[in-house]
Write a protein that binds this DNA or RNA. Structure first.
Lengths: 205, 205
DNA sequence: TAGAAAGTGAACAGATCGGTTTATATTGTG
DNA sequence: CACAATATAAACCGATCTGTTCACTTTCTA
């Protein structure tokens, strides 16, 4: 399983291709993006592109996987495990909401939702590197906070999911469906503060 | 504005076209569906189809609008305004979650999310006939229950949104991204019961 | 510096798709 | 029955797209 797989490999222009592909896919989606456009954006000939990737679908998978893990890492690795729940939830919630309402966060969600029944691997990869990662980290914090008596939670993963969903209330769907196209900091503060309030009303000490 | 609009009209085979279009769009999405397939599924010639609808996009809009309003009406018009919060929330939540986790509910959400930046009208129409409708009805109930002292809510619409989002926790994203492909009644009960618990912990009497 | 490896540009094949046209057939109505 | 509206089937147009091929150039390396 090392040499016989003609799937992908690394070479001089590999990253160029990947970057161009990311840019075009993020603007046009999977179907909307043409390979010629990608090659042009990457500053690479189409023949070169096809020498790295066997087809468009595999190229898309590579891009999507890469972006998902890249984004989720930055969104999660800064939680202070010893801080008070109200502070941690506020900070994490705002970071989370800012990301999923960003142009980029919106688009990656859009593409994954749309394409995950044509390419089930896409959806699963996104879930694993996105929501599931958040779940794990939050669950870990909940356990620690529970041990200190700061929170009273029975089902850690469900609680983490509930908090994530609470942060989406009001503003995220309206953005997703084009009812609005900008989110103010005040909106983010308002929604997250309310999410924290509701969450702590149930799970607080 | 009555006769000069060459947009749509009603005729003998109008409903046939609409039904066929709905079936094909729901399986293949907008880009994936070909007009030839739709005409075949509708049992109608392509020329006939194009005599009713000027182009594919308008046909899709008509189908999407129709389905959104049809579904949201059935999902909302059965709330007992005088019942106790716990009962109303449980019932509404389960109805809601069952719908958005159904094959049909999933697909319409998928399409609207995917296509709502190419066709902003789609997203807005979906929001108006879906989430916004739910918001309005729940808000109305909250007001009534608040007047009776059964609930203490300051922001009705935000509370309604929070409840809707709480119902999605755990099971809906996993379904949406293909991590699972079936939802048991036990899962629905568990998630909704927990949503109600969290909601009432904050807004209960 | 010579030869191999990697990249280029452009054309090409094969296919699909949206939408139109045309000649013919079906249907409804006076 | 006759006439008009409506529907059909099939061919067709032009555009676009994925993926391949090929003759040629650039880049790396021994």
């Amino acid at each position: 399983m090392n040499d016989a797989t003609p799937i992908v490999r690394k070479g001089r222009k590999f990253d160029q291709v990947l970057d161009g592909a990311r840019d075009v896919f993020m603007v046009d989606g999977f179907e909307g993006a043409s390979v010629d456009d990608i090659a042009r954006a990457a500053g690479v000939s189409k023949a070169t592109l096809y020498s790295y990737f066997p087809d468009k679908r595999l190229l898309f998978m590579e891009v999507a996987n890469m972006e998902c893990t890249r984004q989720s890492q930055s969104a999660v690795d800064f939680i202070d495990m010893n801080a008070a729940p109200r502070d941690v939830l506020c900070q994490a919630g705002k970071h989370f909401l800012r990301f999923i309402t960003s142009k980029f966060g919106q688009q990656i969600f859009r593409i994954c939702v749309a394409e995950s029944d044509r390419f089930p691997e896409i959806g699963r990869a996104f879930y694993k590197s996105g929501p599931e990662r958040m779940r794990a980290v939050m669950g870990e914090y909940f356990r620690a906070a529970g041990a200190r008596g700061d929170l009273k939670i029975d089902d850690f993963t469900l609680a983490a999911d509930q908090f994530g969903e609470l942060c989406k209330a009001d503003v995220w769907p309206r953005l997703m469906f084009g009812v609005i196209d900008t989110v103010s900091d005040e909106d983010i503060d308002r929604v997250v503060d309310n999410a924290v309030k509701t969450f702590l009303a149930r799970y607080g000490p």
